[in-house]
Design a binder for these strands. Structure first.
Lengths: 182, 182
DNA sequence: GTCTATAGGCGGATAGAC
DNA sequence: GTCTATCCGCCTATAGAC
């Protein structure tokens, strides 16, 4: 079957987001992508960890890119920016139903303790997430307060995503994002 | 070697808390517990999932038991109760360093998508966590507000534990628990 | 670039002696 | 209750034909 790497990456992301890193085998992935198992080693020389690294980098680009563009635009006021973020994040985190949670958090928690090389990517994600939220809060609050506000809000969002997953109820995330307008 | 089930359970809990469910093999566990691999199937007829179930139940008892006792005591005022919870949770969640996070959250996120039987236990944990926090907040706030306050606070605590893990920095949890005095 | 075949290892689990 | 031995299957990864 004719495929390209981008497409494979997208489909693999969806499967791993749903099933988790450890619970997804190359068999699952090749079924989902319609390519042969061994073909993954052609695309991703370093095997599963390489594949996952690229998936996480892609996720970083999509989420943080969205945030950065919103934080830096002059076309919207603060209220509108926070509203837009709310809409986007709800859409992105519930696209596949309430059950998948945050891929970054999942991966981080799933790879506790042993030597995986995902930590820097996960750290960069949350650092940037907090950073761009702080940039927006600086439109209304002094710098130091904006920073701690951003940390609180990101924590609440991540906690809400986890409870959303556990109870299969999207309202946790909606309420947390409503409270994020401060 | 002479052992008993309780002891094995405690040690297995520590290893799985540190390494994660999927990344811990019976080999790891038998090394840590000083008993033979196959002995686990004597203690836990249903294999790894049974072992994990008992570990999660034990965790529920320890954490929720602590909360329940504090919520129901007449000996402390609200401030003192919240202070005590802060101290206890910091101690419990950072006992093995900042890197392990919340076993319930970890397990939940690690077992996305496939058919594990841990979901009800994890749900009970968070339901009870929120419940007893709400009981305490009712000393100061109307019932409905106490409930949503408890949900917010638990979300923030869980988000803080995750960031604590990611950045190896216990101050996230400390600040979240300081803000829990409302 | 895509496939077949297969290696090599480890993980969970069982049988059964003592 | 504890240990030895062992099975089976799956999983990651590689070699190599086309």
């Amino acid at each position: 079957m004719k495929t390209n790497k981008e497409e494979v990456l997208q489909k693999a992301l969806a499967v791993i987001w749903e099933q988790g890193y450890h619970d997804t085998s190359f068999q699952d992935l090749s079924d989902a992508c319609g390519i042969n198992k061994s073909h993954f080693f052609h695309y991703f020389k370093g095997g599963k960890e390489d594949l996952m690294t690229e998936i996480l980098q892609l996720t970083h680009e999509v989420y943080i890119g969205m945030l950065k563009r919103l934080a830096e635009t002059k076309e919207l006021n603060t209220d509108e920016k926070l509203q837009k973020i709310k809409e986007k994040l709800i859409k992105m985190y519930t696209a596949k139903g309430p059950g998948n949670g945050c891929l970054m958090a999942n991966t981080s928690l799933e790879t506790t303790g042993k030597n995986y090389k995902f930590t820097p990517i996960v750290q960069a994600f949350f650092r940037d997430f907090i950073h761009y939220m702080a940039v927006i809060y600086q439109e209304r609050h002094p710098v130091e307060h904006a920073q701690s506000l951003a940390e609180e809000v990101v924590q609440e969002i991540e906690g809400a995503i986890m409870l959303m997953r556990v109870f299969h109820d999207t309202s946790y995330l909606e309420r947390a994002l409503t409270r994020a307008n401060r």
